[in-house]
Nucleic acid binder design. Structure first.
Length: 258
DNA sequence: TTCCAGGCGTATC
DNA sequence: GATACGCATGGA
């Protein structure tokens, strides 16, 4: 069956190409295919939401959660528009949404992202996931099995040992992603920082994109430029509690405008 | 050829 | 706590 999710306007092209996710690809102007968890899905752009194609009824809640159908983005935009720069950033990317992605996949993806560009990140993840049996994201066992040599052969470079460390800690239970989901932001961040190769920025990306902790504010090279240029005295009050959502609008704006 | 990319670990002060 | 440097890789 096909299933329409009415979540208000969502721009799939912008949402899938703003650097938060790496496994969606355009099949046409209005159709996208992607893999999350064990599920391949095709989604169609609609005026007030999106349609899940050929979806099993029991999978619908997963995708409603993934696309944050429960969140009203007009409220965010209204709040952020108290600040002139954020107002412009929001106006620049109508329909941009921060997704609720799988925490494990987000962890591995953003370890790969460090000191890297989005095109290469996508390529490395694609080659990595080609190593799994069913096309789903490479499991901890898959990554441990590949070893650092195998990981370097797909272009992971010096991040190979970081992926290995993360995979081992998840596999052993030393890092428990289900428990991290329930922790407060600061405690959760402390857990992620135990992984070799996960620093402040990657931890915040995982907390925002994988655990939907919206107060996480990842500072990459682009956002650091935004802070210097527009917010030398800190973020405006209208972002409080939702700094991560604001961050994504600013990130997309600074990278793509002008 | 050099610079850069959704940074981090390590050494040093 | 702050700063400097090396690190794999490939596109610009």
């Amino acid at each position: 069956m096909d299933y329409f999710i009415n979540c208000g306007f969502i721009d799939l092209n912008t949402t899938f190409n703003c650097g938060q996710c790496f496994r969606w690809s355009a099949l046409s102007d209005t159709l996208y295919g992607g893999v999350c968890g064990k599920k391949y899905i095709e989604v169609k752009q609609e005026k007030t939401g999106l349609t899940l194609l050929n979806i099993k009824k029991e999978d619908i809640p997963y995708w409603e959660n993934y696309f944050c159908a429960d969140e009203d983005y007009s409220t965010f935009v209204e709040r952020f528009s108290e600040d002139s720069v954020l107002k412009e950033a929001c106006a620049y990317a109508p329909g941009l949404r921060v997704l609720r992605q799988d925490a494990y996949e987000t962890l591995m993806s953003f370890i790969i992202s460090q000191n890297n560009n989005i095109g290469r990140i996508r390529g490395i993840i694609k080659r990595l996931c080609a190593k799994s049996e069913d096309g789903s994201f490479a499991s901890p066992e898959d990554i441990i099995g590949l070893g650092e040599v195998g990981l370097k052969s797909i272009g992971a470079g010096y991040r190979a040992k970081y992926l290995t460390d993360a995979a081992k800690k998840v596999h052993s239970g030393e890092i428990n992603l289900d428990k991290i989901q329930k922790m407060d932001y600061n405690v959760a961040k402390g857990e992620l920082l135990k992984i070799v190769g996960v620093g402040e920025k990657v931890a915040d990306c995982v907390l925002l994109f994988g655990f939907h902790k919206t107060e996480a504010f990842p500072k990459d090279v682009w956002i650091k430029r935004v802070l210097v240029k527009y917010y030398p005295d800190g973020l405006p009050d209208c972002t409080k509690g939702y700094e991560g959502i604001a961050q994504q609008f600013l990130f997309h704006y600074i990278r793509n405008s002008k």
